[in-house]
Design a protein around this nucleic acid. Structure first.
Lengths: 356, 356
DNA sequence: TATTAACACGAAACCGTTTTCGATAGCCCC
DNA sequence: GGGGCTATCGAAAACGGTTTCGTGTTAATA
């Protein structure tokens, strides 16, 4: 009597999803027969198959994902944990992940750690209990600062694949995908010097971020490589969300530099603006290069030469590495070996640097 | 013999998750006893409870989410489908969703429709088979253009709660949360006029986007309300990702306008730049107001007066509405009534408009 | 005519929980 | 000493699938 169409809700007919059991009942066969018929198993007669398949189509049968996950012990979900989502770089990486994952039939569960260690841990634990087949993550600032990676260790010890990107740690053995931050900073700095600049300043963040320090290293090495002194006074460490004033005007007024490498777009754009406000010309008097080639770089005036980090590529690679691990988990009794991929970045030249 | 610790992997001990069954075996009690003991049921003796709980703690037992989902027919996941993720507004909305959902113990699965109807449909179908308890979505451009909402209808008919935000449709009966686009455009336009501008131009997108046309309406009404003529020649329809040239210089050279309302940041920033390049002063000669108060508005020079849309608020409200529906689904034999919430936007005044 | 193989299907176990409904044992009481 | 309680636990069904392993029927073969 088609009793799976519930009509007990008052004014709205709710067509509940139908199950194998319903089909079996209606067609007076067993559940296993239905299951096999839908998979076109040759155990089942042509006749029965057609009956079942027609019925299933008619009532739009779709197998329940949860039940399949439980049976297969695979969810086809991957968990992504990032420090922030309102952030151009992470967003582009996420897009790369989502695209690749989707192609492969995976869904993506995102959690935002908000740069907090606790949230990172909680989110991981939530997802690690069967909700996902693997993790892709960038560590929160707090986690990097505390140097506590037990939550990661727990997960990998359980055999759950993990891919770290951008904000990684050496403490954990897993796949990683990185930006060549040091190299990029090196190249950008060298590029400034070769265009005739002699005093290159660095605007970086104060604090613990791995990436900033790598960029600083590249900057230093480039100076040395080009035979220039590292002038510590030209390295300005700014608070993350700094206000106009903190980019001290005095620093500009003295102006003992003719070019600036900035570890992000915002520092660069604000720097340019301050410089222009004080009558300097960009790039003639001061050149600027930023990191993170986002909207700001493109639309600033002058437009900003910037290190493009190809986040989307990074995300795709991370997803590829993860899914490979997830799927091999079930083939070979694996030999685990972990890779670290470096995603090359490139310098997008715009108006804030004079063409050397 | 603690046989749930598998040591058959070569060099890496894999501590597989333990289950009720394992605990039961080790402690020589039944699965039901273990389950009850862990829930502190008073059916179970203090003795047994302590034994079980201690064991569970020791081996870090956590119930399997998938199994629980199957049993409860609730996943504690919500599905979010948005047209794009590398997009400031959607990203902020997502953040609002994620935060609220997380507080309530829900996880968020994101799918990007990429403005494609087909992807939207596929993603919905994927998730609708048990993976999520409800949907939050903004329609893809193609969906809006085709006016085909059967996929939404299917889902709601199955009794799956749905909340639409920003890009919505009247065709579907469900909760909605909207920006007061028309009002915001009205206010912004009025604001320009009251500051003494008499010829306000509009830079909008060509095409079907619901939001753009609402903003245009508000713009038109404001002109009328202020007793000014609507000059069609001052309405410029630009391709979505337009290049410098397309914002025709001629339009600026004639300059039959002294203020511009732009339906997004990018149009505004490019407009300002072009204007400045041609020697006009902003805001003295031409004032600018944009929509979407993002990084560009903040860091442009001059900084851009912009309509802030409070995406985070919007996301939080959407999540709240959805979760309410999801949870009531299981209480009352519901009286479904759908709400439409309007999230007020506000004008963030910056340098691109003269203080009226 | 007895044996056997192919065919078509169903029973049951399983994935990991929760929960209902006994069932057993010990104890008190009359 | 039997009836009734309570305390403590286990069996089993259920969620919705997949899959292994029968099993009964029929037809082909010796």
């Amino acid at each position: 009597m088609l009793n799976f169409i519930r009509r007990d809700r008052p004014r709205q007919v709710v067509k509940k999803k139908i199950t194998l059991k319903h089909i079996a009942r209606e067609l007076d066969v067993s559940i296993s027969t239905v299951s096999k018929a839908l998979k076109n198993s040759d155990e089942i007669s042509q006749d029965t198959k057609e009956k079942v398949q027609a019925f299933a189509r008619l009532y739009n049968y779709k197998p329940n994902n949860i039940a399949i996950s439980l049976k297969n012990k695979r969810t086809k979900n991957i968990g992504v944990i990032i420090p922030d989502i309102v952030h151009h770089f992470f967003t582009t990486v996420f897009r790369g992940i989502e695209q690749y994952a989707n192609e492969k039939g995976y869904n993506v569960i995102v959690c935002v750690s908000d740069e907090s260690f606790d949230k990172e841990v909680i989110n991981m634990e939530m997802l690690a209990n069967g909700s996902i087949d693997g993790f892709i993550m960038a560590l929160s600032a707090e986690t990097q600062k505390r140097n506590d990676f037990n939550h990661l260790r727990e997960v990998t010890e359980q055999g759950i694949p993990l891919v770290l990107f951008d904000r990684v740690t050496d403490e954990i053995d897993c796949d990683k995908v990185l930006i060549d931050d040091e190299q990029a900073a090196f190249d950008a700095t060298a590029r400034l010097i070769r265009s005739g600049k002699r005093h290159v300043a660095l605007f970086t963040t104060e604090g613990y971020l791995n990436v900033s320090s790598k960029r600083e290293q590249g900057y230093r090495k480039a100076l040395v490589a080009e035979g220039l002194p590292v002038e510590e006074a030209l390295i300005l460490r700014l608070p993350y969300q700094f206000e106009e004033e903190s980019l001290s005007e005095a620093f500009f007024r003295e102006r003992r530099f003719d070019a600036v490498l900035c570890v992000n777009e915002i520092f660069a754009v604000r720097g340019m603006r301050l410089a222009q406000g004080m009558g300097y010309r960009v790039p003639e008097d001061i050149s600027f290069i930023g990191f993170t080639d986002g909207l700001l770089s493109r639309y600033a005036s002058p437009s900003l030469t910037s290190v493009a980090q190809h986040g989307e590529r990074m995300g795709a690679v991370a997803a590829e590495m993860l899914i490979e691990k997830v799927e091999q988990e079930y083939d070979e009794t694996d030999r685990k070996s972990y890779r670290t991929e470096i995603i090359p970045s490139s310098l997008v030249e715009r108006e804030s640097t004079a063409l050397g």
